[in-house]
Design a protein around this nucleic acid. Sequence first.
RNA 1: GGGUCUGUAGCUUAGUUCGGCAUAGCGGCGGACUCUUAAUCCGCAGGUCAAGGGUUCAAAUCCCUUCAGGCCCGCCA
Length: 515
Amino acid sequence: MTDPSEIVAFDETRLDKVRALRENGVMPYPHTFDRKNTIQEIKSRFADITHEKSVDSVSTAGRLYIIRNHGKTLFADLGDGTEKIQLYIRKNDVGDAQFDFFNQYLERGDFVGVTGHVFRTKLGEITIWVDTITLLCKAVCPLPEKFHGLKDIEKRYRQRYVDLIVNDESRQTFRNRSRIISLIRKFLDELGFLEFETPILQPVDGGANARPFTSYHNCLEQKLFLRIAPELYLKRLAVGGFERVFEIARNFRNEDIDTHHNPEFTMVEIYWAYRDFRDMMALTEDFLTYIVTSICGTDKVTFEDTTINFGKRLKKLSMADAVKEYTGIDIFTHTVEELRTLAQQNKLDEYEKPQTQREFLVLFFEGMVEEKLIQPTFIYDFPVENSPLAKRHREKEGFTERFELFIYGMEVANGFSELNDPVDQKERFEAQDEKRRLGDLEAQMIDYDFINALGYGMPPTGGVGIGIDRLVMLLTNNNSIKEVILFPSMKKLTEGEEESEEIAGTKNGQKPVSG
RNA sequence: GGGUCUGUAGCUUAGUUCGGCAUAGCGGCGGACUCUUAAUCCGCAGGUCAAGGGUUCAAAUCCCUUCAGGCCCGCCA
């Protein structure tokens, strides 16, 4: 296919119409229209209308979706941001000039404004009996086919605007995404949380184990990273005295793309002083119950033929108990060598790597349990080695007070009692740094300023991050993250030199085009 | 990174097994039609068969390479 950003695909006959309109003194792109009613308003206000025309007149505007021409009369479907409504246009009523104008110049995809009266047709459809019609915007790209619409998945992602024009389900998905975001704000606002924006460009990358995107600041002459998580900055706020904070954060991870990963994705991260990981599990439960019932009207969600139950008390298992329950293996009753044999028998890759029971615990959990966690399940008590920002467990040596929430095999939330011992944090960072030296590109960098911040004292704090994209997937029954991200990352189609600021600067002094 | 499937008109697609004139519907254009709703009826135009190469008298079809995408696996909390 052609890349629409590189090649303009205007329809010649539509361009001809634009020219003809201008020659006839008609503005193809007028500045405004006095819309007095949305289609939704009209439909609810005249819900009981009969075949008789309404006394009151209406004025509304939108895009022409379908035109059914009957000679001296025609029907059309008009859609705005709310709904669609049928138009009925008669030559007798609008006059020869307007009627011929419509037939000659207006077509699917154009925006028009109409005035008229409301009535119900013989077949029962609420319809606007049009008195006047005005062209508001002439579309020069043709719409996809009226019945099948736009099915091509790639084109739906690359040209989301077309997808949104013609695919109602897609528009519904993103309407729900927007509602979920505002419900998150409402939920946290009512609990007294403050929303902040922390740096996206960070000199030291941290807060998660992931490969970052790198950028460069010309004047500072220094490398900057696009954040992989807002965590370390939000915790600085806890140090600073903000006791309930959150951020709806776009994170960037320079990793592979698949149905559950997009290079940029959205999380809400929440920090609450004088709370621990159990409190944050409870908060996460309340949060989910609130969002799910608000969006779906019930605490049950259907996802790919599976009913997912978000009833108040979600399942909670320690990682060790989860492994025991789903695999029958009781990790801490076996020696490391026995575990290696079991891992090999269960065809777990990398069964040779782990050196401790705790490492085998993670191996068995990730390899055999995660995918089976269909109903929402909290898994808690993670080994300290792969939780460098979580506080040590108050009872279990070698573990941290950390949990993750799994739904349909996906990790949806991750939280813990935040590590606030600055010396311990420094040692954990140093252990991560050692992994970096050994080639682990996802191990964390040492953030000395963050360590210093902890040195000033951070109250006992609970934190949790919840993946918004995956939550939206679950609540809108979409099995790909690209279906819930408006403009998912796609490989560019055209060949040729990579545009850079320097190259752009040499082209007749033109400003570089962003994008 | 591996496997697999897909790419044909603006859109939805037939044709690929087994090589033989490039299909249709919608949309567009012209015509008929004053309560249709995927309106209907008649006619016309519209193609770099993703790109490049090869085999062949002949390639959308077979072979190779490349590009993009879907799905599965791996990687990635």
